[in-house]
Design a protein around this nucleic acid. Sequence first.
DNA 1: TATGAATGAGAATTCATTCAT
DNA 2: CATGAATGAATTCTCATTCAT
Lengths: 214, 214, 214, 214
Amino acid sequence: MAPTPLKLKQKRSQERRRKIVAAATRLFGRRGIAQTSLTDIAHLAGVPLPSLYDYFKDKQDLVAAVPEENYLALYRQLESAASGTVTADPRRQLRDIFIRNLEYIRDNPDWGRVFFLEIWPSAAVREARIRRAVDRYGLCYVELVREAIARGGYDKRLDPYLAMSMLMGGLCHLTAVWLLYSRPYDLVERGQELFDRLERAFRTSKKGRRAALR
Amino acid sequence: MAPTPLKLKQKRSQERRRKIVAAATRLFGRRGIAQTSLTDIAHLAGVPLPSLYDYFKDKQDLVAAVPEENYLALYRQLESAASGTVTADPRRQLRDIFIRNLEYIRDNPDWGRVFFLEIWPSAAVREARIRRAVDRYGLCYVELVREAIARGGYDKRLDPYLAMSMLMGGLCHLTAVWLLYSRPYDLVERGQELFDRLERAFRTSKKGRRAALR
Amino acid sequence: MAPTPLKLKQKRSQERRRKIVAAATRLFGRRGIAQTSLTDIAHLAGVPLPSLYDYFKDKQDLVAAVPEENYLALYRQLESAASGTVTADPRRQLRDIFIRNLEYIRDNPDWGRVFFLEIWPSAAVREARIRRAVDRYGLCYVELVREAIARGGYDKRLDPYLAMSMLMGGLCHLTAVWLLYSRPYDLVERGQELFDRLERAFRTSKKGRRAALR
Amino acid sequence: MAPTPLKLKQKRSQERRRKIVAAATRLFGRRGIAQTSLTDIAHLAGVPLPSLYDYFKDKQDLVAAVPEENYLALYRQLESAASGTVTADPRRQLRDIFIRNLEYIRDNPDWGRVFFLEIWPSAAVREARIRRAVDRYGLCYVELVREAIARGGYDKRLDPYLAMSMLMGGLCHLTAVWLLYSRPYDLVERGQELFDRLERAFRTSKKGRRAALR
DNA sequence: TATGAATGAGAATTCATTCAT
DNA sequence: CATGAATGAATTCTCATTCAT
């Protein structure tokens, strides 16, 4: 009857909502979105099935909530970390956001699973609402790369979108392998290695310039 | 040779099988594997639903056939292209395989959709049979990078697996964006750009060495 | 207590469950288990097909419920009848249980059909859960025969298991003919005749002893 | 097209037919009739699936052929054994037919399975054609008992049909237990014991007479 | 004729969603 | 309001039977 999720004035409700999203995150990641039923989620969350509909319009809505919620958490973490830093060096920031993301995945592998194995890249991402969350994140990278170029840290010929693809693609692949092959390496360490290597491709250099002209 | 567990002795059958795989490839890519029913596939392929079971044990089997089939086609294309070349320069070969893959995707966007948005990275890849096909492909990259390192073309400190992640991650992300955002750029051209940039991160260089030590 | 693996907390549900089991009992008996679809059962029970799954895990589970349910009813009837009797004469008890069983079948021919034409003896009985119910019943006979032997009423050389086979075999065959040939005789009367005849084969006797030595 | 099975002029055809029935016998017994597909039978028999239809109108027809065929074999065996014997003592004959049946089952447990666990007693026996084969066999018993009574060997008050129920019921139960509980005893030996016991219930005796009057 | 292939008609089962208490 | 129960709509898969070569 209610076309929009009810407003959650009460505290317990917020708690419930979080439990549902957490359960969904875990199950989506482990079995896949399609293979997870709302019954399963309700069961794991410890709430009665119809209660899901107090918080989410339908399954689609819940699916969309998972990346949103987690991006929110990631952003919160980034911000809290950034608050101390005064340096607004975009390269440093870029590295930070990249590493923090890996840390978040390491600490929340369920979310990693959902996002890197289920949502992105997948047909689900086509849904506008999900895409928005993803795009927003990707644009952070683009923006920082752009700034780094402006400041002369990165090669002027570097297309920021291409750089973003390299960063996110690497992040994605690294994570996927880490998840699929039972975490055979330290994700964050490996990510740092990847980032530093990648920056060599971004930075201004005579050698690079020549290669790019080829 | 035929990865099908069932019979198929007559010629018309081969045709049918191909039609089914083609239909599955297209639908899996557009709607997602879980959202595609066998009914849909049969309909698009123009065969009665139960006939699918003459060619594939179950849905899983059909899902697995899609990457296998397409990898086969890709390999065939790579080989035919390679046959002319005598030069066994691994860097050249690496670039070749990378670019050809993009070309194949550009020419078979449906397959690109299935593979980059559905199968890899996704829970489906957890299935042994699918993983095998994917791994085999990834190992080509690893091998070529290794050779390039041995020949001194690439940095000795470069971990071939890391390089592979950068290559495949970039390929994947580029393709995903290309597909999701209605092909906003020339995939192959962009891929070349990405590859050449990436190689700057692979090559031996004093600057790089110092960075890696950090 | 409830053999169902699923919930059922409200009163109306109990009613539903009973209706489903009744419908299953009837249809299994008339057409055979394999020839009866869940659709048929749901239809006869007047409930929507998926509701069966609220009460039974799957068809197998429903099949198993039929003998269990009816054995329960039979036992209840035996107990209520036994409560009045103080005499613990095992021969009397044996006759009682035998006759009551026939009465139950006469009054519930559908159940008789399922049990004697479908479940026992049949491949279904191979399933552990069903076998347990059947075995439990057979062991009543064995036990009572054993006691009757101990008290000197029956021949010491009589193997209680063999006696059980004769009793249950006779019961089974009588019922089967009664059901298959449109009840051509009074089942209970005939059963008494059979039981009394059979006892002559069980009882101690000089003639019998000699025959057994042969 | 052909509503009746073709006549089998050729020798190979007869051979094929036998192989099909043998395969059906085994599979019906092991998995149950309903759980056995014609494909399975054809496969085990080593004939192409459509060939079944050269010998049997439909599955039903094949099902009916199984008891027919086996009864034929049983009869053949009985006859060959009887040919030597001049004694037409009905009690001896009865014992013979009973024991030979057990021997046949012991030697063809597959057939035992089909018949005692699948066909008799089961809904299948309701089919006229199958019933005929079964009835014919049962009537042998009735006839012999009748003769034995006439000759004074058995009690005049004994109902031949009741005796038949006791014999066949016992045979059935013994066999079923033997099959279901992994042949825990020597079937034939046990059958002899049962038969001899049972005869004590059949024979003329003062004790018996009194009991029957009760 | 023999037989590989094809298929129409179900069957069981699942699940998102909504009543009704 | 909270929630146990209910269900319509699909979905995968099976199989007896029949083409068509």
